[in-house]
Design a protein around this nucleic acid. Structure first.
Lengths: 244, 244
DNA sequence: CGCCTATTTGATAGCCGTCAACCGGAGTGG
DNA sequence: CCACTCCGGTTGACGGCTATCAAATAGGCG
């Protein structure tokens, strides 16, 4: 079960830009230390100076920000293979928190080593840049989601996105999504409250759009859910296979 | 009045990363064609193939996405010096629209020329990467804004951010903000409706937090506004002056 | 078995959306 | 010069989606 190599990172970067064997080997040869993270433990804290870059190997993680008054917004959810703080290659100070969702395992790659690799290999630099741009694109879609969709649409859209991303990384099929998020965390990701998330999920289930068992969600009517959400995977830029 | 050089871009990139004279000259020598854009005209349309990269020289621009049902969300607002579609250096297909706000003037830089410069000059590459990361950081803050703040806070925060960014680019002092946005556009940026934006702006004005005259807003009580908004400029990463 | 957290449910309130009308300034054409 | 038009801003009434508060239930774990 345990992934002990950076293979998920290779897969993720390769999703957007073609990496030849040489590129792949270079990534796999990056030095890293393994770290296990308990649920809700912090991987990065707002205000931290930039340290090593963390890549998620297994489990899930999320980023969040809070207002002065303590309200929390989850701004992204990460699945294995994704880099959790590539921004720290470029920014000196963290502007948000990164926490593990459930048990997670991360590879800590020394900032210098990653930088050297990126400097030395334009193709990988390009892959990293594309990966960052895709992340920005997801931020934009979340902004649309939180700003302009109602509760049903927001939750449906979030589930569609996660199912699609997990399927692409071959972590889960699109028919079932095992998401170890509490309803309160779903609320923080969608700009709702946990109470309303609860009612909305039950409503979606009553309508046959999802089916739940513990934290696992399956999609008996994927097309219906996609339609409710207004979900289109264009913003995930999945198909892009292009050299530098 | 008319800026005919790429100086605003130099200034913008130099905000985050120190650029020596050589770097600056290289940017200023980039080939470009000038284009004027009428209010609301499209600079990029969702679905467009990537073309030249546009840098805003004067005026304002914004990016927006719409839901299937036609609701619109403005996901960012751009001021002179900012690149409007750097993501097209990396992505093949636009996932959102970019439009001019009021009369704008943009420099269109051929994709290939910009790419070559970035490839050849690691310091500039770094500046571009930092600039992209700052943009991501702003997306995250907007997500928090739209997801977790009420109408007063959202509008106050938006105004604080724009005033701060304009001041940094030395386009306006922080005491007055000339923002040629309709209230409907403000609504689209904050996830509200134009009617509610109107009431909220009037409420802020009644409380002496802002003062309005046409589309110009001034801040008689900047500290009060900042406090209402819970605004902190950390996420703009202004001070970072660091070589690659 | 008891504790703790997460989920579920109900009642109530409020922020904000919706609909509709009116106002006001800028531009246009007669 | 003035009427006309149009767009954006302003205002009011009303309704609904979602938040809030509170409590009960269920599930996991030592």
């Amino acid at each position: 079960m345990a992934e002990l190599s950076l293979a998920p990172l290779v897969r993720k970067l390769g999703n957007h830009v073609h990496l030849d064997e040489c590129d792949q080997a270079a990534i796999l040869q990056l030095p890293f230390t393994l770290r296990s993270a308990a649920p809700l433990s912090y991987l990065v804290r707002e205000g931290d100076a930039a340290g090593a870059c963390a890549v998620l190997l297994s489990g899930y993680a999320f980023r969040s920000k809070t207002t002065e008054t303590g309200a929390r917004q989850i701004v992204s959810i990460h699945i294995p293979g994704e880099a959790l703080d590539l921004q720290h290659l470029f920014l000196d100070c963290a502007d948000h928190n990164v926490q593990a969702l459930a048990e997670a395992r991360v590879a800590l790659i020394p900032r210098a080593a990653l930088r050297e690799l990126v400097m030395a290999n334009p193709n990988i630099a390009h892959a990293v840049a594309v990966s960052n741009q895709v992340e920005s694109s997801i931020f934009r879609e979340w902004l649309l989601n939180v700003g302009r969709r109602d509760a049903r649409q927001r939750l449906a859209h979030l589930m569609c996105e996660l199912a699609t991303r997990l399927e692409q990384q071959e972590i889960a099929s699109s028919s079932t999504l095992v998401l170890p998020m509490t309803q309160e965390q779903l609320a923080d990701a969608t700009g709702l409250t946990s109470v309303h998330v609860n009612r909305t999920l039950m409503s979606l289930e009553k309508d046959g759009l999802i089916s739940r068992s513990k934290r696992a969600v399956s999609f008996p009517d994927w097309e219906g859910l996609r339609s409710i959400a207004g979900f289109s995977d264009l913003y995930l830029h999945l198909g892009q296979q292009k050299a530098a």
